[in-house]
Nucleic acid binder design. Structure first.
Ligand SMILES: [Zn+2]
Ligand SMILES: [Zn+2]
Ligand SMILES: [Zn+2]
Ligand SMILES: [Zn+2]
Lengths: 130, 130
DNA sequence: TACATAGTGTTATATTATAACAATTTACTA
DNA sequence: TAGTAAATTGTTATAATATAACACTATGTA
């Protein structure tokens, strides 16, 4: 059992905001929302985001420059992530498929190289948007 | 047989540069390199990049905000891409594995949803850096 | 020709992210 | 418990990435 990571004040404020959000949040939208709580500068946001990503509490959606809370209780470290992204409404869902993660974690390239980390983003239309 | 896409002048200049590069290129590094050829503004670069990505001649490495020429002659459209990225030297290689692309193209999530596009980035250490 | 479509050139601006430095808090240990 | 290293914070400034808006030009085709 891994020791539960305690969040600092800024990290907690920012995590709570992202966690409550129903959609991925961008850094400056986060900044705008936490200014009333005393977080005034971009760096304060980015530092908290970096840490939260590092410990796996949130993930960055690279194609959108946005951040989402981990929806997968087992993601204690951010090293194997997969998302589905709707190209119309921009809804993002973290995919948790044992077979997918097994396949990718064990994937070896032509040279037999195995990787320590991956990020996969699927694009399509969600149920509502079809 | 798909009609060969003809590139415009700016597109060709920028594609040639990226194609010759041994590493992914960032937009402003591209701009710097093509200024002597008359491409002076970021927008001229980004417009060419957008088009080249759209037709599959180059791909964007999302985690690096950089662009690489397609190394896979069959990628006429950019809709199923996979890369390996060395976390030390930043070397990027396009992975072309029939079994991987088959697995991902056919992947369905819990709701039975199939996706029209994906991008996968693997991270690790390349041969040289291990 | 007339029209639609795609591409270009240009200026300005928006968005995303980091550098540098000083101060403070926290956790560990001598 | 004082000492100290590590992590976090606050702050200002700036770097890096990307798009808006508008006028103009080339290209294909009816
Ligand atoms: Zn997760
Ligand atoms: Zn949707
Ligand atoms: Zn390709
Ligand atoms: Zn390497």
């Amino acid at each position: 059992m891994q020791k539960q990571q305690l969040l600092t004040k800024n990290q907690q404020i920012i995590f709570d905001l992202i966690d409550k959000s129903t959609e991925p949040m961008k850094a400056y939208a986060i900044l705008f929302n936490v200014q009333k709580k005393g977080i005034k500068a971009p760096l304060q946001v980015y530092r908290a985001l970096d840490k939260l990503v590092e410990i796996g509490k949130i993930h960055k959606i690279e194609s959108r420059n946005a951040f989402i809370a981990c929806q997968n209780s087992s993601c204690q470290v951010s090293k194997a992530t997969a998302f589905s992204i709707c190209e119309i409404c921009e809804k993002v869902t973290e995919i948790s498929s044992a077979s997918l993660s097994k396949y990718l974690t064990n994937f070896k390239d032509k040279d037999g190289m195995k990787y320590s980390k991956y990020n996969l983003e699927f694009f399509g239309l969600c149920k509502k948007c079809r």
